[in-house]
Design a protein around this nucleic acid. Sequence first.
DNA 1: ACTACGATTAAA
DNA 2: TTAATCGTAGTC
Length: 206
Amino acid sequence: MKLNRSFYSKNAVRLSKDLLGKYLVHSIDGKELVGKIVEVEAYMGIGDKAAHSYKGRRTARTEVMYGEEGHAYIYLIYGMYHCLNVVAAKEGIAQAVLVRALEPIKGVDIMADNRYGKALGELKKGQITNITNGPGKLCRAFNITKVYNGEDLTGNRLFICENRNSKEEFDIVETKRIGIDYAEEAKFFPWRFYIKDNPYISVKEK
DNA sequence: ACTACGATTAAA
DNA sequence: TTAATCGTAGTC
């Protein structure tokens, strides 16, 4: 079941936790890439020094975060990697959830090709769990680029749906966010969430 | 127009 | 630990 607009109508921290366990789907060339969301981070906007929309910064890049909830905010980082975010909260409130890691579910052979240019069976040990265990990696594996910036996630190309195994249960771990040393006190906020013991988490301990 | 740097990753 | 690599945002 595809998630509807109201699912996204909540603040980024709440949406972060609700997104864990859901399936991200990219429909491309008649095929489906599917990954279970296992790690996310909340960026709370105006009062969050780590957020691109801190202090209400409104630029061409951050514009989609101010738009309708349930759309994709995608940006290029370090000149070479894309990051996928889910826009949270109502229009005018620039909050988003960074999708940091996925567990590959379907189309893994295509993901392997996108990441390594090899067939799944040719991957060395360790490369399997390395396919989608980071924000830049999962975008590369899913072939998600800025082309999808602003994409409606309730649409048919890139969307999020309910876990088919709806009775699956898991514990949620809350920790500090990754890679935001510049954010002063905000770097200690426990706004990173991941599924406990999942093998596809990006950064282990700290 | 000019410049510094990043919500990362792979390699050394 | 460090290089890669360039769009974005802040400054001049």
